[in-house]
């Protein structure tokens, strides 16, 4: 005997949301809640429960970007509201999209690995492909590669950003700690996503690596804070490009450290060593490159960097 036939489980809420969209979209005038409850399939039960259902449905459709017009039916009696979806505000219109352009958009959509922008771009592409334009495979003759790593929870960060809502999360750095942050900006820097925001417990703007965030949640209401200007965020990791660079003087073994010599001023020091002067954006960057080259390089100046390296290496030998 074969498997018994399984009747599909009805998804009443999805059906109701689609039916409501179609009814509001079809109406040329504002329709009342009573008309909706009477005519749209899926609304049943006591009036109070149908009203709650309708309020949730409106919020759900709005979360999908569907604009529902709400206005009083009579300007003299503002207590009775009517609803509709304007076809002009619902439907997508993009002037003169060619198949070649659609092909380029398809390549652009594939340049993401993170779920937020990758899924967003794919959804956009599907809508654009529903406009009746054939896609032609774009031959850009250029290798286009994804620019970022995938990280979870960018959706939550995006929602908090666009709604100006407070975020809470666990952050793993030197210490693992709980943070409460006003999110200001998402930044993609060298393949990794960062969140720039105000650490509410310290009232300072900080940069958080998204990969080190876990248990991310939104707290409180929308518009909980004002976003500062980009100028005010200049003290963050990505904003301080105008800051003074650090100049380092090095003794570098001849014929060695070819990559370190790029962009540096080089003079002979003696028959074994060159004197190299190089500017770095950050001290961390200088330290990392100098340590990478091991015993082929020695810091002459600044003295603070020199002594930092000595104590670091001594700790490794001890």
């Amino acid at each position: 005997m074969g498997e018994p036939y399984r009747y599909p489980v009805p998804d009443l809420k999805t059906e109701r949301l689609i039916n409501l969209t179609m009814a509001l979209l079809a109406s040329k005038r504002l329709i009342t809640k009573a008309e909706i409850f009477q005519s749209v399939a899926g609304y049943s039960g006591a009036t109070e429960s149908m009203e709650r259902m309708f309020e949730r449905d409106k919020d759900d459709l709005r979360s999908l970007g569907i604009e529902i017009e709400v206005a009083p039916l009579d300007s003299l009696f503002e207590d009775e509201l009517g609803y509709r979806i304007s076809p002009d505000k619902y439907s997508l219109t993009v002037p003169d999209l060619t198949s070649q352009e659609l092909g380029v958009l398809s390549v652009a959509a594939n340049s993401w690995q993170n779920a937020l922008f990758s899924q967003g771009a794919q959804r956009a592409l599907r809508k654009l492909e529903s406009l009746g334009v054939e896609t032609s495979a774009a031959s850009l003759q250029t290798a286009i590669v994804p620019v970022d790593r995938n990280v979870g929870d960018l959706h939550v960060l995006w929602q908090a950003l666009t709604e100006s809502r407070v975020l809470t999360f666990t952050y793993s750095s030197m210490e693992t700690s709980e943070r409460e942050v006003n999110p200001y900006k998402l930044s993609l820097f060298r393949g990794d996503w960062y969140l720039i925001g105000e650490d509410r417990s310290k009232s300072v703007i900080r940069t958080f690596k998204v990969r080190r965030m876990s248990k991310i949640a939104i707290k409180g209401k929308s518009r909980a804070f004002e976003r500062p200007t980009d100028e005010a965020m200049k003290t963050t990791l990505f904003g301080n490009v105008d800051d003074e660079q650090i100049r380092v003087v090095l003794r570098v073994r001849k014929e060695a450290c070819l990559s370190l010599r790029t962009g540096a001023i080089i003079n002979a020091f003696d028959e074994d060593w060159d004197l190299v002067v190089k500017d770095y954006q950050y001290e961390k960057e200088a330290l990392s490159e100098i340590l990478w080259h091991g015993d082929d390089v020695e810091v002459v100046e600044p003295a603070s960097l020199r002594s930092h390296i000595v104590s670091l290496i001594e700790s490794r030998i001890a």
């Binding site: 970007g65 439907s91 997508l92 771009a121 666009t162």
Partner: peptide, 17 residues
């Protein structure tokens, strides 16, 4: 007709470009 693009969909495409 397809629905209009949402904010995040447009931004995903613009940044992708």
């Amino acid at each position: 007709r397809p629905r209009k693009l949402t904010q995040v969909e447009i931004i995903s495409i613009v940044l992708g470009l």
